[in-house]
Simulated assay, not measured.
Amino acid sequence: MHDLNFIHFSMHKNGPQITHLAYADDIIIFSSGNSKSIKLVMKQIRNYEISSGKIVNKDKGFFLVGPKSCAYRINRIRNKTGFLDKSFPFTYLGCPIYIYRKRLSYFDNMTAKIIERLSGWQGNMLPCGGKMYPVSKKWCTSNSQAWKYLLWARDKCKNQIIWKINDGQCYFWWDNWTEMGPLAQLCPNFITRSTNKKKVKDFISNNIWDVQRLYNTLPSPVALHISSIKLGQCNKSDYAIWKATEDGHFSNGSAWHTIRKHKVTNAAIGTIWHKSIPFKQFFMCWRIYYGRVPLYKGLNISDSQNNADCLCCFVPKNETIQHVFAESN
């Protein structure tokens, strides 16, 4: 608006003087509420409709005024614009626009959408109940590398979990409570349909092991090892111990050290990459060390004229890293 009769929306003089915000086919126009300014705004809207051939939808449009505006001013703006009035807060591009203090109720719609999205993701990806793991999708060659790495990390971390038996609610075959790994991996040929979903408590009687049933279900060495495991209090729940830490409590740092691939430290590279050496120099040393310097020998370039020989020496020799940086003149 370049008309002198147009009065802008009152804003702080040190900040940007905003007249409108536009995104796609939505626009917010900031103006004062006097009659001349409203007429100029509507004039610009009509010019837009004539030039573009599009009509502004007055059913979707609305105007807002300050909470202390009188009814006379609101009715006057209604008559001049043809729009209905609304009150704060309102939603623009998914975000609540409000005045005065922030309230949690303003963000109810946004929170509901996030919860709905997460619930949909959980329903598709996370199985419910029992001791199921979040990452339980079947491994197949069509999976992405990221998904395969998640499955690999899951198995690595799962091996660090040991269950201590109290009430015996752990799964007999699938949980690691023997400190030897899941029995399904140790004795895969001994699983039957009738014992597939058995729990540890099914092999305990009066808070002692049912040794006869263990020997009937498992190989003798495994049954002997289990019979030596001390049982806890039957009125308490089983609990997990994280082997990667001394106190048995899980931590993100210990999980990272469990899944990360440790590389052998190269003493020579440690000497090159030093804070006291300028960047250009140690980067060049690094390239030389790994043979990343563009020489004839490294690039396998042959030239009929120089035959990949170094031209800087009195007696030309093959242009290798050893020759250029150690033996040349």
Rank of each mutant, 00 (worst) to 15 (best):
L4H: 13
F6V: 04
I7C: 13
P16K: 11
H20N: 11
D26Y: 10
D26E: 15
I29E: 09
S31R: 06
S37I: 04
V41M: 11
K43T: 12
Q44K: 09
E49T: 07
G53N: 11
G61Q: 02
F62K: 11
F63G: 01
F63T: 03
G66L: 07
K68D: 02
S69G: 01
R73D: 14
I74H: 01
G82T: 03
F83T: 00
F83Y: 13
F88N: 01
F90G: 01
Y92S: 04
Y92D: 01
L93G: 14
G94N: 09
C95A: 08
I99F: 02
R101S: 03
K102Y: 00
F107I: 00
D108K: 15
I115C: 13
G120A: 13
G120Y: 10
N124I: 05
P127L: 15
P127V: 13
Y133M: 14
P134I: 14
K137F: 14
W139G: 01
T141S: 12
S142Q: 12
K158V: 05
N159R: 14
Q160V: 04
D175R: 02
E179G: 08
P182D: 09
P182N: 08
Q185C: 11
C187Y: 01
P188Y: 06
T192F: 07
N196S: 13
K197I: 05
K201I: 08
I204K: 07
I204A: 10
I208V: 15
R213K: 15
R213Q: 14
T217E: 13
L218G: 12
V222L: 15
S228L: 12
Q233G: 00
C234P: 00
A240V: 06
K243M: 14
G248I: 07
H249S: 13
S251H: 05
G253K: 11
S254A: 15
S254Y: 06
W256M: 07
R260W: 00
N266T: 09
T271L: 10
I277C: 11
F283H: 09
M284W: 00
I288Q: 06
R292S: 04
V293Y: 04
P294D: 12
Y296W: 04
I301L: 15
N307A: 07
V315G: 01
V324R: 00
A326K: 01
